[in-house]
Nucleic acid binder design. Structure first.
Lengths: 212, 212
DNA sequence: TCATTACTAGAATCCTATTCTAGAATATAG
DNA sequence: CTATATTCTAGAATAGGATTCTAGTAATGA
């Protein structure tokens, strides 16, 4: 994953080491629990070095956060855009989400924990831009199917809420450690629920009304 | 030796003053931004007094968090249990959620921010207990309608995910400050979406199949 | 009234994120 | 290949704020 600018090899590796160490600490001890000293020890970097690369602990976390979101969103988008049928897209997204969560439990926990962190408002445009691009590309896919008559016409924010909201909520439950419905079943149920919410009454299972 | 924590009026008011002050600070400056000194000044309580009532800043926040959740959940439950028809219940819950958010924007922001805080795991049984009671009472309502044939049979965690997930996700958007669909519209759309997900195919708008 | 407990006060402590100063590596120009 | 500038690393010093401590003051109860 390419980060942001064109950093030279030597320094970039230091930077990555720090990020890796920080992520490990954060996921295993929690954000507020881990001290800069922990990160320093684990990465073998000095205080000065860390602060050369990152403005603050918060900003270091933000960086990690963005990297995770980027991976998640990128995968989700290609998954979605690969799907021709409306029904396929809806189910694929739900499955993608839950599989990603299953495959990256630590990441997930961290992302959820930081989801409403204070840096979210003020953070650089990276986040805002990334996010609007995400919404736009999702919308584009949806619009196609709305025009084809397979999906109901809804505002984009409502779309995403209906499609991803249940996944998020279920995930919250999943990472909390309390017992919950097995993932296969959940994928099936949440996919079905989303599909029932979003499809038009005309659309039928498996039938694809794509045309101009 | 009385070990029972019956709070006398005098002390209780101090306690409340501290909670009020803390909430005000947290919502207006954010959790990490506000210092104990801020809370001390705003509440006119001394350091010692604050730490007599609350173990730590975290725990103070947790207390406030619980109070908010309690209010939200209590209202949601009575709203739900007041409704006879399945459809009425679903729509009422969605409306309740978004109206609550509209009426308590500061609370909402704070609750969202703290939703995945680190104290959530380890916190006293208060939270766990409250939460399972909430789930159980919701389930009870659902089960009635499942038996009546108006709602589909789904695992409780999936139920709540499908019903509340979209509300949560929309709320996230709403409190972020970015422009979004007006609340009336959102209530209508999210209610409809949830209803379509959860109703059985037999159930019809307005028709109530309640019986033994 | 005495004794025990709950509460308040604010100074002292302690922890840790951040800043500072200086020195090593590395790149760039001439 | 030097000189010089820039980037990077170090680790000690600082500073800010959460928490603890010690000593008192009000309330309660026998």
């Amino acid at each position: 994953m390419k980060t942001v600018p064109k950093r030279q090899g030597k320094s970039a590796s230091r930077r990555k080491e720090i990020i890796q160490a920080a992520l490990a600490c954060f996921t295993e001890r929690g954000f507020t629990e881990t001290s800069m000293a922990d990160i320093r020890r684990r990465s073998n970097a000095s205080t000065g070095s860390i602060y050369h690369h990152f403005k603050s602990k918060e900003q270091l976390a933000a960086e990690i956060y963005l990297e995770g979101i980027r991976d998640y969103q990128a995968g989700l988008l290609t998954t979605l855009e690969d799907q021709e049928s409306a029904r396929g897209g809806i189910f694929a997204v739900v499955a993608y989400h839950l599989r990603w969560v299953e495959a990256h439990p630590d990441w997930t926990r961290f992302l959820f924990q930081k989801r409403h962190a204070e840096f979210m408002d003020s953070t650089d445009d990276d986040f805002a831009g990334m996010n609007t691009e995400f919404v736009q590309r999702c919308s584009r896919w949806f619009v196609r199917h709305v025009k084809a008559g397979t999906l109901r016409r809804l505002p984009p924010d409502v779309y995403l809420s209906v499609l991803l909201g249940p996944c998020m909520e279920f995930t919250r439950h999943y990472v909390s450690g309390r017992p919950c419905t097995p993932l296969d079943r959940a994928i099936h149920e949440l996919g079905t629920a989303a599909w029932r919410s979003l499809k038009t009454d005309a659309a039928r299972k498996g039938v694809n009304h794509e045309n101009s």
